[in-house]
Design a protein around this nucleic acid. Structure first.
Lengths: 221, 221
DNA sequence: GGCCGCCTATGACGCCGGTCATAACCTCGT
DNA sequence: ACGAGGTTATGACCGGCGTCATAGGCGGCC
């Protein structure tokens, strides 16, 4: 499993050696297993998290039982940004997609860094602002794109090389649909020769075709 | 028209008198009319904006011509947060909903404040982080709630007292649907006696009923 | 080893909501 | 004053996708 160093992570790569040393001594390492929850919705936001190895996703579960996936993180990504809000709670649940481990940083540590080094404040701000833009992009996609378009976009954007490790259920949750339609759509892509579906994974065979669908071109079987 | 002072605005209310004075001298005031665009998608993000009077919304227009409204701002709100990202472009278009005016702050001004006063950095971070949570909430709503539920939620959340000033088209764009269905849904609410529709506005008569619909209770005509 | 639970897969059915068309009304600008 | 363009309104149509049901395959746990 790919495991990164702290200085490779976003935000932390800006730290000077002395800052890094101070930070490192105050981070806790939290291993997790696939499916394990790292924090829960409405739990007080007590830490900023930095993914070190494995993958994590954040999800929201509606009162009706529907699960929606918000973001998917890879080693080096920050999550649990609700710490930035005074006395806030997490608005989502974070769970391991694979097994892995994450550093947790107490809020005072973060506050201290931001206080002493304005570069860091700007960087953190930039990270959150970019995520906001990303969320708005997805909002538009949810509002007007068909499920096939959203799934094709997900494949193109999130695939690691030509592979995406995710069950049909997880893909459905990520694009705001049900398992059944995710399966049906992926089977159509499969029959068209654009992907090769496996259990818990998808391999992209024809990226260009998927990009066309993602752009809104309709499927003609 | 309600017109606020700079020290009443979010973020700026934290400034000390000396900071306020320095800032005030470097803000430009930009009046706008209803429907006028204040900045455009993909234009370089050269200013942070502070709404002083009137209302503004941000929208995205997809290649297919569909418009989706992202956020709606009232006096005292910050917008154009893309400035926080180095060398970024705005990801949305900001347009006047009513006429009004907004201050524009050059990015160096913002950078200077954040550099000198870590409290301000934290506040700005908190503002963006809250917006991110809001965007994620809407994402879930778009993913699984019916159009009536989304419209009812909009009415309950965004109404100013018991009135919401917005055309059916604007309401449709805000909840990710078409004018026609927005009209149809609002007519049903109207016939049920829950709202009173006017041209360019809606008055809430039965808030509790709307809240039930927003929570997912289905309509039984 | 055997069972349970999750995964992929597919059919049937039905409804929500998008699209297109039409029409009356309002208001704003010239 | 009058026309143009936007707004509210409603009907017809139909396709996408959610829901429910069923089934075989695979892996993991007791």
């Amino acid at each position: 499993m790919r495991r990164i160093q702290l200085e490779e992570a976003e935000f932390f790569h800006l730290l000077r050696p002395d800052q890094l040393a101070r930070v490192r001594s105050r981070l806790l390492l939290r291993p997790f297993r696939a499916g394990e929850c790292i924090y829960f919705t409405s739990e007080p936001a007590e830490s900023l998290w930095v993914l070190r190895a494995g993958e994590v996703r954040t999800v929201k579960i509606s009162p009706t039982g529907h699960t929606t996936a918000l973001e998917r993180f890879r080693p080096g990504d920050l999550f649990g940004l609700a710490v930035a809000v005074e006395a806030a709670s997490y608005g989502e649940t974070a769970e391991g997609v694979t097994q892995g481990e994450a550093w947790r940083a107490p809020p005072q540590l973060l506050a201290g860094l931001v206080r002493d080094d304005p570069r860091l404040a700007r960087e953190l701000l930039a990270i959150v602002a970019k995520r906001l833009q990303g969320a708005h992009d997805r909002l538009c996609s949810f509002a007007h794109d068909s499920v096939p378009a959203r799934i094709a976009l997900l494949l193109v954007e999130q695939a690691d090389g030509d592979r995406l490790e995710a069950t049909r259920r997880a893909i459905g949750e990520a694009v705001g649909t049900t398992v059944e339609t995710a399966i049906r759509v992926l089977r159509r892509f499969d029959r068209a020769g654009w992907i090769e579906g496996g259990v818990g994974s998808v391999r992209i065979l024809d990226r260009k075709a998927l990009e066309r669908v993602a752009r809104g071109e309709k499927l003609t079987d």
